[in-house]
Amino acid sequence: MKKTVKKEALIALIENLMKDHEVVSPVETAGKGVFYRKIDKAKDVYLGPAFAVEPVKKFFLHPSEWICGCNKEEGTASPCPVPADDKKRVIFGVRPCEARGLVLLDKIFAPDDPAGYQDTSYIDNRSRSVIVGLACSVPDRTCFCVSLDGSPVETRGMDAVLFDMGDNFIVEILTEKGKSILGSLPGTIDAGSEKALEAAKEKTKKLVVKTVKAPDSLDASFKSDYWKKVSLSCLSCGVCTYLCPTCHCFDLVEEERKKLRCYDGCAFPDFTLETSGENPRPTKKERYRQRVFHKFDYFKKNFGENLCVGCGRCIRFCPVKIDISEVAAGAPIK
């Protein structure tokens, strides 16, 4: 169901939603970029073309999160659960690549197999959130979603989506959850707008010029020196993994009588360093290869898809401009 909605009407709706929902949206921070924030003023909502630095992932898989308590009192100890926040949440401005990232994360944290391990914290965050996406209108030159079976105007993982049509938004409601939030918006859509929308979609898709021709399997390149060569400039920081909409590796540590889950990444030497001093991924070669293989080989073997949505963040923010699309495409598989 689609309707044309005035931008002011959407802001008014958000204002109203904030009474009994947690509302999250991209917010412009002067000189620092765009960041998703819990908002307390509807006018702070930013639905412009700039991309958020951190992907929406952080509202589902928090950068650091208490996952259970571990009380230690006078020689006895008992674990206790940390109460979860269960307030209804609406997230505006989620881009197609980020929403698709959530669909991929679901395979890990909310597996279909009932005997699989369901991550209740992730699932709670998913079920209490309504995702109102924002289709892209100005892709960045580092974006390459189209060549990874995605699109700047697709809607997988969204409950509703907004298309910026200049003075208005076209709102498309995709699920019951989306209807519950945006169903009350007044408006209809005429045939002309419908046509204009389709034309705009096609135009935007063509604006994604970067492509990645990742081979179906990287397996044959595993032992190649190529991985040493392409990892030489890697600094072993966490930028690419932390800002990736699909990277999900984490660490578990105990602090303040609680168990903390926090982001971790395959670029850090300590990620796999064992207490004995052995490290199965001793150099940047093995560590960087792991990231590329996880994205373009291992995940595909396990789930049939690449673990990359082509959002371009790891390219935009890599301090030394390593380009995973070039690296994956250039892997010697013959």
Binding site: C237, L243, P319
Partner: peptide, 12 residues
Amino acid sequence: SRCIRCYACRQV
């Protein structure tokens, strides 16, 4: 408050 502890500052 925005720091994500990616340690890019350290690694670079």
